[in-house]
Design a protein around this nucleic acid. Structure first.
Lengths: 258, 258
DNA sequence: TCCTTTACCAACCGGTGGTCGGTATGTAGA
DNA sequence: TCTACATACCGACCACCGGTTGGTAAAGGA
């Protein structure tokens, strides 16, 4: 038996409003996502989350069994968005396989651009130890979500006799890897933009995308210039938008500087 | 001031043997590596490591500033081995760029085969939350170590007029991604081997490697069959060897089943 | 022999994820 | 309207983990 005494656990002043379960869950998830993106996985404590979400520790553990469930929730949200975007791009586009592929890729890039805050965070945090987990999970989940769509498009192109590939699954793997490797270029471009060199940043990013297009032409057995990823105006617009956002403030206290 | 009293800190019975710094460091690193590979990053505590290495907590922190340094040490070892293997393959091979590339790839695959215990661990643990970090670090460090070698070989081939590629850096990215994506196939092949289907496993693995070769032919602008990765006899031998090893035992106590 | 450095130790600490007994707010049936 | 049960929520408490600290003894040079 524990010595609890006559403590009034739920005094009227401290008791919070009762919310619908899904709403409370979403609110906690929102708070957690913001904090994770600002500080990284292991720099965020349950105490931070419950303070930000306005709930007690016990209340938190009523909705989530463990801290890891927060990660799952955030990653799930990303995955769902990516899938929805990819499926939408696939559904709305018409024409032959190449046209649809171009539309899909453009849509995916545009979705990625909307994720610049996240990207920015990942760029900052990639080398910081505590964020490996969050980064890895998001990347793996996104790739897993996009892969089947890409596979379908490549298979369609082959079936239509439009694409000529020796190994379709390897092509998909390579395309996925390219989009992940693009991160470094985007990082450089964003930094250059913030440093004032919008022209140089645009050239860098557009050059990378043109090279990716040429590479995909080669992989899919298409004549050069078929996969059209070069789009300087759009990239300029994206970079300019990315430079305008504010950084999410970091935690004030820093327990050990190491 | 802390109340220490007259405690005998280093009684004769408990004081350990004094070792050479590098030897002790290596011993701790060995213990840590075994534990990490068996249980994963965050399931291993400092207490586990020091118990396994036969040293006190204070002694541990004399050699390592933080738990993360253990990770760095383990990953560094891997990276160094990969680099050494790659450089050796590059140095010993003679002939034109294609011959050297084939020799290099064969050497890299053979090195990977020696890592089957690790691979086995990663395969088991990839979905377990605690190992994301270890997995991600090893993969990133290996890729970072191999990338410059690959870049050099591709550049050589282009300079010799042997390869025809639109974007060399993207080709390297794709090759790296292919070797990482191969993991899933290796996983399936090892499982099949352990289930008794050595022929099927060999066919699966060799098929994948043949496809990778064909894909690289395409990327490098070479006639089909140039990059020779198909080698059923060797893969059969590797798989048979991989099936013979024992699993590292897991931790006995499990704090919460969750 | 003395002194400095170094390898090592045990106790301790702040903080973190997670648990537990208990309380208030619904809501369904009598 | 009263009662009974499920559920949203609370906050004190706990085990334990990574890391710090003050101190000890062996090694090694002068």
């Amino acid at each position: 038996m524990r010595k609890v005494g006559t403590v009034e656990h739920g005094s009227d002043t401290s008791r919070r409003q009762r919310m619908a379960p899904e709403a409370r869950r979403a609110a906690i998830l929102d708070a957690a996502q913001t904090l994770f993106f600002a500080r990284g996985w292991d720099a965020v404590t349950i105490a931070d989350v419950i303070e930000s979400a306005g709930i007690s520790k016990g209340g938190f553990y009523h909705h989530f069994a463990a801290k890891e469930d927060l990660l799952d929730g955030v990653v799930d949200r990303f995955t769902r968005e990516a899938v929805a975007s990819a499926e939408a791009a696939r559904a709305t586009s018409s024409g032959d396989a190449l046209v649809r592929l171009n539309a899909f890729l453009a849509g995916a890039i545009r979705w990625k651009a909307k994720q610049v805050p996240t990207t920015r965070f990942v760029l900052d945090a990639l080398r910081r130890p505590g964020n490996d987990m969050l980064f890895h999970r998001i990347q793996a989940a996104s790739a897993a979500a996009v892969r089947p769509v890409l596979e379908g498009m490549v298979a369609d192109g082959i079936a239509e006799g439009r694409f000529d590939v020796p190994a379709a699954d390897l092509v998909v793997e390579a395309i996925l890897a390219l989009s992940q490797g693009r991160r470094n270029v985007v990082e450089a471009a964003i930094r250059a933009t913030e440093a004032g060199d919008l022209d140089g940043a645009t050239a860098t990013l557009d050059g990378r995308m043109a090279a990716e297009g040429a590479f995909m032409d080669r992989m899919l057995g298409l004549p050069p210039g078929s996969v059209a990823l070069s789009n300087p105006e759009e990239y300029r617009r994206m970079l300019r938008a990315s430079a305008r956002r504010e950084d999410i403030p970091r935690r004030a206290r820093c327990p050990q500087a190491r």
